[in-house]
């Protein structure tokens, strides 16, 4: 048996799962979106896509989703890098306490969503603290952050969840940074800020980039946080898909499938753009 065939055979259990689940799933979704399978199966038709692209709400949803994913990932990356640098500079005896940053990493997204409600809700913890400190007259005077129509709840939840991921990635790399390099910079008179911008950022940049694309793509399609914290309009795409697929009449399923296809292609596009840039960056 040739070596290559043997490798393929040995990998076959894994490969077949991958092919069946991912490629199979995508194929069926694609077929359903053009009316070739599922409830509306019949002649090939692009009606679902036509409905989506003539619907102004779809455009609004799409922009909103990209906006939320972008703003929460960028904030998480910035916050995470700064916090990682702070933890890294702490004396070793303090460092063991900073393990608390890993808590959001272990908690599921859905738990983070509920914690966000608990803190930011109008009768939530922040509102209570404000009331007891006399900052607001009644609890109802607390601004309705969660339902302001700007997605603040979703962004907060994502930032909380993803920042700890960024810290983990960046900190791992920072511990590999040789102390002598830092010492040299300090001896040459670099301030903390200069140290951060000239040594830490360039050194951790690969980890930052990697974690950015991971969390960005996740929040682009993630469902649990938007579902719990969603406002009515505009809607995150994943929530629209859920409601088209499960809550409405079966005739809307091709639209849900079409949305899934669009979301998949969008993720693929971002990924390609990202790696194209990456190669450029390495050369």
């Amino acid at each position: 048996m040739k070596k290559r065939t043997r490798i393929v055979l040995q990998l076959s259990p894994l490969l077949s799962i991958f092919i069946v689940l991912l490629a199979g799933g995508f194929t069926f979704t694609l077929l359903e979106s053009v009316h070739l399978t599922g409830f509306s199966a019949g002649k090939f038709s692009l009606a679902a896509y036509r409905i989506l692209f003539t619907d102004t709400q779809f455009t609004a949803s799409l922009l909103y989703t990209v906006f939320i994913a972008l703003i929460s990932s960028v904030s998480a990356v910035i916050l995470g890098t700064i916090l990682a640098a702070v933890i890294w500079r702490l004396p070793v005896s303090f460092q063991k306490w900073t393990v608390v940053y890993k808590i959001p990493l272990i908690l599921p997204h859905i738990t983070i969503a509920f914690i966000t409600i608990l803190f930011l809700g109008r009768t939530g913890i922040l509102s209570r603290i404000g009331y007891h400190l006399g900052l607001i007259q009644t609890m109802k005077a607390f601004p309705n952050i969660l339902y302001s129509g700007k997605g603040i709840g979703i962004i907060t939840a994502y930032v909380v969840k993803e920042t700890s991921f960024v810290i983990l990635m960046v900190l791992g790399l920072l511990f590999k940074l040789s102390e002598s390099q830092v010492q040299t910079a300090r001896m040459l008179g670099a301030s903390r800020f200069t140290l951060f911008t000239t040594v830490i950022i360039p050194f951790t940049f690969p980890a930052v980039r990697m974690s950015f694309i991971i969390i960005f793509l996740y929040s682009l399609g993630g469902f649990d946080i938007p579902y719990i914290l969603s406002e009515s309009s505009p809607e995150m795409l994943s929530v629209s898909i859920f409601s088209l697929y499960f809550k409405k009449d079966l005739i809307h399923r091709p639209e849900a499938a079409a949305l899934l296809v669009i979301l998949f292609l969008l993720s693929l596009l971002f990924l390609l753009l990202f790696f194209k840039k990456e190669r450029h960056y390495e050369v």
């Binding site: 809700g121 109008r122 009768t123 109802k140 309705n144 339902y147 129509g149 579902y227 969603s230 406002e231 009515s232 309009s233």
Partner: peptide, 22 residues
């Protein structure tokens, strides 16, 4: 509520607004 700019997601969400006195 909220000048009709947003609506509760489902009946459970409305129930909790009602419970909290909103």
């Amino acid at each position: 509520w909220q000048q009709g700019k947003v609506y509760p997601r489902d009946s459970a969400a409305l129930d909790s607004l009602f419970e909290q006195g909103e």
